[in-house]
Design a protein around this nucleic acid. Structure first.
Lengths: 201, 201
DNA sequence: ACGACGTTAGACCGGCCTGTCTAAATAGGC
DNA sequence: GCCTATTTAGACAGGCCGGTCTAACGTCGT
């Protein structure tokens, strides 16, 4: 057995890295395996030794993206304790994402755009979306608002809006716009909630 | 010269229709010209007689999409006179779009996802985005809010958010979420504006 | 009835794509 | 030093793709 740590990274790792670079920046259908192995500096045989085929490589590429992003977002959230600040932190993390020069939108939206409904891309996208919704539902439940589900839906919409606008317009400031709007919603949700409580007394 | 009206639609029209169906529902790279001509019921020669190549067909497909959507949106807007209602009407039109069973997101976002930066897709997308921004900037200028530019940015973000969420989650109700949020923003913008005026007196 | 325009069917080319296979070199664990 | 796991280079096959070309057929204005 080979230990996971080696002087030079393993062919599988280099392939995954190359896939991450190329699939994200140019699209999955556009990039052939020849390009991937060339960018990885690896023989074609290594690809089919490490993966069953392009599909599996694509799948692992998306899973990898999901993991990395989830880490980054949760790290941003956990820097705060106030429920409201934890929500807003997500949009700040988006801001750091948009600021990256190679930002080209959400990998899962892009994958969905060129994928068949029953493809591995669609499957990974579904998993990713479930995570997004769960994230905001958890965050929304900790805040003192009327309906956490409705709040979460709106926060997801702002998240998606920031992602899409930033991509289409190459406009990193969309993160701040989303954050500002989220603040407004939270203020208002608080207000309505407090009013409702006052009336109940 | 052949008159534009014929019993049976011209090969060019049928090709454009087929391109519209297939490129939108399956993606541009995914669909080959063989599929397009088969779906159009047209000979391959007709494609290269009517268009210079696939690129031109793609370009006209996107221009056609842009035109149709612009018509539909402006029709929805012009049904109202109140500036605020005209803004909200856009999200209602989005709702009718999402309700279509074949809805698969924004053609321009999808095209951008699989296109190179300098492609005809990117070019058409830029034109489309300029139209979107102009639309909301005009609408925002007619409302009594503080900064029309900032308001427009937020409305665009809500528009994009609705489009993206509806696609990723197959959730047509995203239109209503966006509309509700837009109302909240407009209420608040009004409020702040009025307060600012009061302070100025 | 002629001629331009539009259209047809299909053969054909070069190129790229995914995937298979072979045969040999390079590791690392024991 | 042996054995297995990993990796290499490249030839190869079969399929799809965009695009060209030919030869012929309809249609319609004049």
């Amino acid at each position: 057995m080979t230990k996971p740590e080696q002087r030079r990274r393993t062919a599988k790792q280099r392939l995954l890295q190359a896939a991450d670079d190329l699939f994200y920046s140019e699209g999955i259908h556009t990039v052939g395996i020849d390009r991937v192995i060339a960018h990885a500096g690896v023989a074609k045989g290594s690809l089919y030794y490490s993966f069953t085929g392009k599909d599996e490589l694509v799948h692992e590429y998306l899973i990898h993206r999901h993991g990395k992003w989830a880490e980054r977002v949760t790290a941003g959230i956990e820097a705060h304790t106030d429920p409201r600040a934890r929500i807003l932190a997500v949009y700040d993390v988006l801001g750091t994402l948009f600021a990256q020069p190679d930002y080209r939108g959400c990998a899962f939206m892009n994958a969905t755009a060129e994928a068949a409904p029953d493809s591995v891309e669609a499957q990974a996208a579904t998993t990713f979306r479930a995570w997004v919704h769960n994230l905001f539902l958890d965050l929304a439940s900790d805040v003192d608002a009327g309906d956490p589900k409705q709040l979460a839906e709106t926060l997801v919409l702002l998240y998606d809006g920031a992602v899409a606008t930033a991509q289409m317009d190459r406009a990193p400031e969309a993160a701040r716009t989303a954050r500002r709007t989220a603040e407004l919603i939270l203020d208002n949700a608080d207000l309505r909630h407090i009013e409702a409580e006052a009336q109940a007394l």
